[in-house]
Write a protein that binds this DNA or RNA. Structure first.
Lengths: 339, 339
DNA sequence: CTGAAAGCGCTTACAG
DNA sequence: CTGAAAGCGCTTACAG
């Protein structure tokens, strides 16, 4: 690459100090620099195609204006939707975002954190995997600004922004009951992650508290790596003769899609034979022949809040913000359009 | 944040120069440093929780080991799948990735390029919007390593990796013809983007060259911003009485989903009333009641190739690589599983 | 085997 | 209004 032009080059060109060039290009000391000199500096910068080296600036200012975003898997539509919202909000606040996928693997997660911190990101937005508490405590000890997104650890007093999963699951379950289901099933994950346990508790409590107590309720748990076979087996269990459920709550959109495709193939009709409610929304739910009911997470609010809380922390705020937002029950064929 | 520990702190602690510390921690001059000293340095680094400051390193080495990824919209599953593949490949090659969405807007695109270059990324992977040729020529002039992904400009001699869209569309169209469609439609974008024009040419040429010439063939073009209404109108046009098509090629998965949902609601049966082939794959296609045929792009090969070509260029290669990869016609209910 | 020193490209307190 | 100079935290040619 042809040598890049630096402040020094401009200074030489114009015949002033680099300090002055820096002031002018950063619009500092506005009134205190001769208009004429300022203009010559700007002109030279333009002419030489000057590009401020943010790396040098970062080294000096100890700020990179970049944040790290760690999700389970950016290829998951739920994650990429959040990523997009965070990107927009971060850009608005003059931050760039680095991203990484943890694959639910705490070691990989720690490696990502390490890489990002070495790159001197100003803070992190994290959807943490299981068993990452220690790593997060480490971050707290090092006073790295971060906010958890979508997930949290009750044992840790950190910033977080997530759905009120208990209420959402409660709502979804009650919906199934009022739709007349008397034998309910849930397919969720075998995990210690609190947000998923909240969904399970919401399911169970809704059943307990309802007058419409189902004759049976079954919970199937699959691995968080979403093995299609395992999900298929879970569904089979719920639909087997001995436990024929007529209402199912799916704890994620991936579980939902996997199960709906199986229902398609087995010609089990929704909602005729079995009613379902899914967690998370997807524009693709519209492909299903019947309207699907799902818990819509307020993704935009969540992403924006997480980004704002993070940047506030970066800029010095020390208070901890914990947000549980309400989801709403929605249904395709009435939902917002895909873009 | 409690002051960070630097090389200097370790040097002081151990009683050696920072140079030595640097050598040891970078595993340089292996044989030429006393084992005992090296061990003491490593131990101190560990004990003090030393974190190498990549910003300082980058300033000195003129390499950031990060690449910028610019897509149309990271929230689009097609984009996020590519992003994930690129992330993995980049990590393997010791690069971190920054991302940005252009929203098909050339001004926004240029801003992103600018931001990334100011951050001194070592190179860019770009899915360029319309009218970004000048910006790309600029990059060439500045000798910034970059590779185009999914899209290209025939007028520009740049690296690129993309589907052979002409052949893929040809294949898809021929498929519809052999399925007995005698009145074909295509819904694509009104755009100068070459990869989409290639799809259109493939469609048209397949018709011309076939013995199974359809009685009519219609092309509807919608804006690249995917206005649902516009897509709906396009579909209406194809299905209106005067031009009742029985086979449609959708130029993107977004167009496909939008149209399939409308077909769902209008109770027009696929493939009974109309057969369709979609571009791009989506795990969610499985939600559709009937098997869907689609052009599967070799995303993994594309993402990996783009990343490798870029890093090769960063490391000094100067040759230009242009790859058009073959897509294959695939169908849900037989495709790989969703994870 | 090891160290002193320059320098990457900025910012910014200080001095005038 | 403007400049000289230190310093951010590294790397690395050079010298010994």
């Amino acid at each position: 690459m042809s040598r890049k032009v630096s402040l020094k080059d401009i200074a030489k060109e114009v015949g002033v100090s680099t300090a002055l060039v820096s002031y002018v290009l950063n619009n500092l000391k506005e009134g205190r620099i001769r208009k004429e000199v300022a203009e010559r500096i700007r002109e030279a910068a333009r002419r030489l195609n000057y590009r401020p080296n943010q790396v040098a600036r970062s080294l000096k200012t100890q700020k990179t204006n970049s944040i790290g975003l760690i999700l389970a898997d950016i290829a998951n539509p739920f994650s990429s939707s959040l990523a997009r919202i965070i990107e927009d909000e971060a850009n608005k606040l003059a931050y760039t975002v680095l991203f990484g996928s943890s694959d639910e693997n705490p070691e990989k997660f720690e490696r990502l954190v390490d890489t990002f911190l070495n790159k001197q990101v100003d803070g992190l937005i994290i959807s943490p995997p299981e068993n990452s508490e220690t790593a997060l405590e480490q971050l707290q000890k090092q006073e790295v600004p971060f906010v958890l997104l979508d997930r949290y650890f009750p044992s840790l007093n950190t910033n977080y922004v997530l759905l009120d999963n208990y209420r959402a699951a409660h709502l979804a379950t009650t919906h199934l009951l009022t739709q007349g289901c008397d034998c309910l099933g849930m397919i969720t994950y075998a995990t210690s992650l609190a947000h998923l346990q909240d969904r399970e508790r919401g399911f169970v409590d809704a059943l307990k508290q309802s007058d419409l107590q189902p004759s049976r309720a079954l919970i199937q748990r699959v691995g968080i790596d979403n093995e299609p076979e395992e999900i298929g087996n879970a569904l089979d269990q719920l639909l087997s003769n001995s436990s024929r459920v007529n209402g199912i709550l799916f704890a994620s959109n991936i579980i939902a899609v996997q199960c709906l495709r199986i229902l398609n193939r087995s010609s089990i009709r929704v909602p005729g034979d079995v009613k379902v409610v899914c967690f998370d929304e997807s524009p693709f739910f519209d492909l299903f022949y019947a309207p699907l009911t799902f818990v819509r997470q307020p993704l935009r609010q969540m992403g924006e809040a997480a980004t704002r809380i993070l940047t506030d922390n970066i800029r010095g705020t020390t208070n901890i913000t914990q947000l549980q937002m309400d989801g709403e029950l929605s249904s395709t064929h009435s939902s917002t359009e895909l873009r």
